[in-house]
């Protein structure tokens, strides 16, 4: 009898605690679900806020970084003397390594018609150092800009670049509009 009593009391206490724990989890979950979204978040760079500090190349958990340079062709002036391709005060306007700004030679310069050249980023080689972006923003139209490529990004719970971005240019955004692209490409990217 005595033993039964003890066990009954213990059982009773345990079920009480269980119930209150369940209520606690329910309360926390309920409060959070009020602010929940069925969508997922992804990380996005705002190219208008970006100050091209170069941390995207170093601080990503991936090496090379998931941040790559993207070319908004409809903003590009197709210049021969490209501030994003050539180092300032370049020796001559050519594809020689001594004239290239990109440390990994990831920008391909292609002749189209006199005097216009097309610049294409080779994503395999790009390390997201933003040197060309800075050059293009300073001397050109700003058509070269950084983007987080979602085919590469692991979508960390907290982006380690965002934590260190000096201009707070990296934010969580709904996964349905993952890119804020310069120029007129916003529509197709969002679909």
């Amino acid at each position: 009898m005595g033993k039964d009593k003890i066990y009954n009391r213990r059982d009773f206490l345990e079920s009480g605690m269980r119930l209150s724990l369940a209520l606690a989890v329910g309360a926390v979950g309920g409060m959070a679900i009020g602010k929940a979204t069925t969508e997922d978040w992804v990380w996005q760079i705002d190219p208008f806020a970006c100050t091209q500090c170069g941390r995207c190349a170093d601080e990503c958990v991936l090496s090379p970084s998931a941040v790559k340079c993207v070319h908004a062709f409809d903003l590009c002036g197709y210049c021969d003397l490209c501030g994003g391709y050539l180092i300032p005060g370049a020796n001559e306007i050519s594809t020689g390594a001594e004239n290239q700004l990109c440390p990994t030679s990831a920008i391909q310069r292609k002749y189209i018609e006199d005097p216009y050249f097309e610049y294409i980023i080779n994503e395999e080689l790009c390390i997201g150092c933003a040197k060309c972006v800075k050059g293009c923003a300073s001397f050109g139209n700003g058509s070269l800009h950084l983007q987080i490529k979602h085919s590469l990004c692991k979508n960390c719970n907290e982006c380690s670049i965002a934590r260190l971005c000096p201009s707070d240019a990296i934010k969580r955004v709904p996964a349905s509009s993952p890119y804020l692209v310069k120029g007129g490409f916003v529509e197709p990217a969002g679909s």
Binding site: E123, G140, F185
Partner: peptide, 21 residues
């Protein structure tokens, strides 16, 4: 630097922007 008017029939490529998971 305004965008040039191309005579050679150049078609401007679109940037590659792969979708998230």
């Amino acid at each position: 630097f305004p965008r040039p008017e191309f005579e050679s029939g150049y078609v401007q490529p679109a940037p590659e922007l792969p979708a998230p998971r």
